[in-house]
């Protein structure tokens, strides 16, 4: 096996002689102490509550509450309706019903801008498709969702404010880049993902939803994302973490909601959660798929 990093040859060795941690440390260039860093926080008051959310077949009567000082994990198999749930919350896809409460007050979300203004934001699943304007600069990408802050009444953009915002986002998260004018699409996967998240760090968000934030990025970048989620948690921001990778949900989340076939099928505190329990909940409806449900699913 040959290990490369940053376009350079690092080392080579027989597959049998290397264990996971050696491989990782060569890949990253330093020792990764913890694969899943965990920070303990006091669970505080409820921040964000979703009540009876219905949006198409993939989001059926979803209700949950997220609390201060916790990372709320969403586990489930592919196609369990988690991404659809996040999109419905964020106002991207239309919903049939559902109420949202932020810090005890009901908020209306009908389009993404409503959610953004009120501090509920989404770092979407597929960064190339949904997360970034890859042809635009890093600066433009960070600027885009925050134009309501950086532009005045007439819509003229205040460049100084944007520069401040980009600096703030950059400080929170070390994105490796030559300068902030390079194409977002030229960044590595990990840095692109960091950029998707850092768009939301430039403003005061209350709830940040991470949809599969670690898919297809390297180990070091994954740990940075986990660390960031922990920091946000410590700051009292509600972190909602959707992931299909069971070990990382178990390693990072404080509470886990399991979805199957568009419905919430269980909720587990991290102390009681195991892979087996999650899997059992995640496949609850799998064997109950009746014949009349099948064409419907194919349609979706």
């Amino acid at each position: 096996m040959t290990i490369m990093r940053d376009g350079k040859y690092i080392t080579e060795g027989d597959f049998r002689d290397m264990d996971m941690s050696t491989i990782i440390s060569h890949m990253v260039g330093r020792e990764i102490k913890e694969k899943f860093p965990r920070v303990q926080c006091q669970k505080g008051k409820p921040i964000f509550e979703v009540r009876n959310l219905n949006a198409g077949r993939m989001v059926r009567d979803v209700s949950f509450t997220s609390y201060e000082g916790e990372i709320l994990g969403f586990a489930g198999l592919m196609g369990a309706g988690r991404t659809e749930t996040t999109r419905a919350i964020f106002g991207v896809d239309p919903r049939e019903s559902g109420q949202f409460f932020l810090d005890g007050r009901e908020i209306k979300i009908n389009k993404p801008m409503d959610a953004i203004r009120q501090g509920v934001v989404l770092a979407p699943e597929d960064r190339k498709r949904d997360g970034l304007c890859t042809k635009l600069s890093i600066r433009s990408n960070i600027e885009l969702p925050n134009l309501d802050i950086s532009s005045g009444k007439g819509g003229v953009v205040n460049r100084r404010k944007v520069t401040e915002m980009v600096a703030k986002a950059k400080k929170e998260f070390e994105i490796k880049m030559p300068n902030d004018e390079v194409d977002a699409g030229s960044l590595s996967g990990g840095n692109q993902q960091k950029l998707v998240v850092s768009k939301w760090l430039a403003r005061e968000s209350r709830v940040i939803i991470f949809d599969e934030p670690t898919r297809g990025i390297d180990v070091a970048a994954k740990v940075e994302i986990y660390n960031l989620m922990n920091q946000l948690k410590q700051r009292g921001i509600s972190v909602i973490f959707v992931s299909s990778e069971m070990p990382e949900v178990l390693g990072i989340a404080d509470r886990i909601i399991v979805m199957c076939d568009g419905r919430i099928t269980g909720e587990l505190d991290i102390e009681e959660a195991t892979q087996e329990k999650i899997l059992e909940m995640a496949t609850r409806f799998e064997n109950k798929l009746t014949a009349d449900q099948m064409p419907q699913q194919a349609h979706n």
Partner: peptide, 23 residues
């Protein structure tokens, strides 16, 4: 120099990402 201008570029670069950024 304006918000509308930024939106035009964003939509042209990636419609879905622009939508998810509140455009």
């Amino acid at each position: 120099y304006t918000r509308t201008g930024r939106h035009l570029y964003a939509v042209g670069s990636n419609t879905e990402a622009a939508k998810l950024s509140g455009v």
